[in-house]
Amino acid sequence: MASHSRTSARGNSGGGGARIGSGAKIRGRVSGSGDLTVDGSIEGEVSVRGNLVVNESGSVKGDAVDADSITVAGTLEADGQVTGQLRVLVGSRVRCNVKGGIALDEGAEFSGRIDADFDLPPELEGGGHSGRRGRN
């Protein structure tokens, strides 16, 4: 298929991190440490030790996405797991399964499973079925 490119995002200097410009398209895996801002598009896996920001014009589509925090104003579609604190802003379109916390603005389009780790109050635990739901 398409040639795989690698982008390393290194957050060292003042501005720090990497930016995928609005005209840029990346197919492949993007990894590194530092913040990553996406105005263009990425198809593939994203794994950064830092904050991932997908702006209005940006889109990330593909497999797993892993970052310390993920803020989406554009498009995020992931077939794999999304790991990190996800913030979905109004006007964005997000389809993914999230391991961890999510903040969703009213007006954003979202579909997917959220899997936060917490316990229900004891009154609601136990009983008929366990806290984790059987059906998909």
Binding site: L104, E106, F110, S111, G112, I114, L124, R133
Partner: peptide, 28 residues
């Protein structure tokens, strides 16, 4: 908020600090 279950509405808002296990679907 602590919710174990699916969440469906045309418009959904989830605040930071709300905890959820389940499927979320906004239906625009």
């Amino acid at each position: 908020a602590k919710v174990v279950g699916d969440v469906r509405a045309p418009r959904i808002a989830i605040a930071q600090g709300a905890l959820l296990r389940g499927y979320v679907q906004t239906a625009n």
